[in-house]
């Protein structure tokens, strides 16, 4: 009788075994699963604070899902953006939940990133051989803040507009290239349709791609170096 063993689970159903074998012959899944899941071990000493990296990743995934859903109805146009957000909130069924999750997710993600960073710092986990993963993490922190900054403008409210006016004014203080940076961020002297389109593109395309690349680097290093042992 043919059967498959996945760690503690034994599959005996003939159809399931046949189906899996068919796919497995072509993809070599079993080997990968055994390597990456079923013979893998995890430390038992992990405390509450060690979970925040994983929690941050989960919230990031939630942001991707709710962000996609918002993008279905959101219109990145200075005349229509606000109305489209109002429509999502008031007219679309469960739209208020999706927007609420996305807004709260943004805030919670900053909190969990900070806790994660604090844990890594105070437990000295950034030390060799994990120095480079700390650097990757700091870049991810900046990407998270970039998401918050660009996402904040999108509803095109008084607060988001003026916070962006002030926020994009700040880099103009940099010697020599300051004004160039400001104009590059705004796409002109003022906050306009160009700025909104730019922030939208950054928020939904560029930053997500950069984040995924950095996350892959982050996780590859964890996989290679393992979760840090107890002190």
């Amino acid at each position: 009788m043919e059967q498959l063993k996945f760690g503690p689970i034994t599959v005996k159903n003939r159809l399931a075994v046949k189906g899996f074998n068919y796919i497995n012959k072509r993809l070599g899944l079993k080997e990968i699963l055994d390597d990456e899941v079923f013979t893998k071990v995890a430390p038992t000493h992990l405390g509450f604070l060690s979970c925040f990296g994983g929690i941050t990743f989960f919230i990031f995934l939630m942001q991707v899902v709710t962000g996609l859903l918002l993008m279905i109805y959101y219109i990145p146009d200075v005349d229509k953006a606000y109305a489209s957000v109002v429509m999502i909130t008031n007219d679309i069924e469960f739209g208020w939940v999706v927007r609420g999750l996305h807004a709260w997710g943004a805030n919670l993600m900053v909190i969990t990133v900070i806790i994660h960073m604090g844990k890594i710092y105070f437990s000295g986990i950034y030390k060799a051989p994990r120095e480079f993963n700390w650097v990757t993490g700091i870049v991810l922190l900046n990407l998270t803040l970039g998401f918050s900054f660009t996402g904040y403008l999108l509803p095109w409210t008084q607060l988001s507009y003026w916070a962006t006016v002030v926020g994009t004014e700040v880099p103009s203080a940099v010697p020599l290239v300051g004004d160039t940076i400001k104009i590059l961020m705004r796409g002109g002297e003022d906050i306009s349709q160009v700025t909104l389109s730019r922030f939208f593109t950054l928020h939904v395309i560029l930053l997500p791609i950069a984040t995924v690349v950095l996350l892959v680097l982050h996780f590859m290093q964890i996989r290679r170096q393992g979760i840090s042992g107890p002190m």
């Binding site: 859903l69 109805y73 007219d91 679309i92 069924e93 469960f94 939940v97 999706v98």
Partner: peptide, 11 residues
């Protein structure tokens, strides 16, 4: 369920 309802705009 909410997802299903969300994807069908009310009008």
């Amino acid at each position: 369920y909410p997802l299903y309802r969300y994807l069908f705009p009310s009008d």
